[in-house]
């Protein structure tokens, strides 16, 4: 079937891209002008210790062998050891990755629920106050530095109104009184599974501000994108024909037109997903969120390149897969795609 062929082709392409990406990440990380051996053993180590460290870190091998060894380890779940903390990176990742993912997923939900309907309404009520409000709202969101928005939200809700906590994922009291059993690493899921509702509420309170801040850019983008494609779709003859058949506004806008407009919007969403993962870095700094972002930024500033490579790799893998997801989704929704 043509569609299955198309999907397989896209998968292969994604795989190739991943290989290319891993090579580049590896090369860049190696470009870091520092001496990982010195970092590992300390400035006063003896030559033998340094040599031993070199061998242990695999730095005595030619570059391509280092790369292969690294990739082999990665694929078996071993991301190496932090040069600074000597801890296996995979342990850190198990904590930090879900933290960031939870944030990003919640913010994507906000984006879908707020951004797309506003875009549709904006196009449907083009040139009315609804449209103008949406567009201004969208432009502001798209132009706002996310870390600044995070600060402002903190200023308003934490300092002024004292409604929400200042940072972190969970309050100290809850951590002591109703600790969370880590199953998936997603606090909302873990607390719900355990029926630990006080912790669930607490986790939610911690999640709200950072995810709203993170969602802002994507919301603005999806309003603009949805509006633009909807406006174009609404001018098509098949929409006029739908009006001529007496179909209701709800049917025309949200069933017929939206399906045609959704693909470019989803593509934008996948791009903004990536942006949100990297934007999460900035939000995490402001909200003291123990996620990949803070992990990465600290690693960069302390030149702990095994961490940098690992995080970069993971984030990019997500990016590639989300692009793939959108391509596949497009193939599923649009019957004409596989013919290309």
């Amino acid at each position: 079937m043509a569609k299955a062929e198309y999907i397989i082709r896209r998968l292969l392409l994604a795989f190739l891209v991943l290989v290319g990406v891993s090579i580049i990440t590896f090369v860049i990380a190696r470009m870091v002008p520092s001496d990982p051996v010195a970092l590992y053993v300390g400035p006063r180590a003896k030559p033998e210790a340094r040599e031993a460290a070199r061998v242990k870190l695999g730095l005595d091998r030619p570059l391509h062998q280092q790369y292969l060894r690294y990739m082999g380890e990665v694929l078996s779940g071993d991301f190496g050891i932090s040069v600074r903390s000597r801890r296996p990176i995979i342990d850190d990742l198990k904590v930090f990755l879900p933290a960031t993912l939870e944030l990003v997923l919640l913010s994507m939900i906000f984006t879908l629920v707020i951004g797309i309907p506003l875009g549709v309404l904006s196009a449907a009520f083009k040139d009315t106050w609804v449209d103008h409000f949406s567009r201004i709202f969208a432009v502001i969101n798209v132009s706002m530095p996310v870390f600044w928005l995070a600060l402002l939200l903190q200023l308003l809700f934490v300092r002024q109104l004292d409604l929400l906590p200042v940072g972190g994922r969970i309050s100290r009291d809850i951590a002591i009184l109703s600790p969370i059993e880590p199953v998936t690493g997603f606090y909302l899921v873990d607390t719900a599974l355990a029926g630990n509702w006080s912790a669930f509420r607490d986790a939610l309170r911690h999640l709200i501000l950072p995810s709203i801040a993170l969602a802002s850019y994507a919301i603005g983008l999806s309003i603009r994108m949805t509006r633009a494609t909807m406006v174009e779709v609404l001018q098509q003859k098949y929409i006029t024909a739908a009006w001529a058949a007496g179909l209701t506004r709800r049917t025309v806008y949200f069933k017929l037109a939206l399906k045609n407009a959704i693909v470019p919007t989803l593509m934008v969403l996948s791009l903004s997903f990536v942006w949100q993962v990297s934007g999460a870095m900035l939000v995490e700094i402001v909200f003291l969120w123990p996620g990949l972002g803070t992990y990465l930024v600290n690693a960069i500033l302390t030149i702990d390149f095994p961490i940098v490579v690992s995080v970069a790799l993971i984030v990019t893998v997500f990016y590639v897969f989300s692009n793939l997801f959108v391509d596949v989704l497009q193939a599923v929704i649009d019957p004409r795609v596989s013919l290309e």
Partner: peptide
Amino acid sequence: QQVRGARIAMVFQDPATSLNPLF
């Protein structure tokens, strides 16, 4: 909205554009 489609209907010039491609 009641009249359109049920009492008076319309067909258009280019059927390629007057049918929704995704349904």
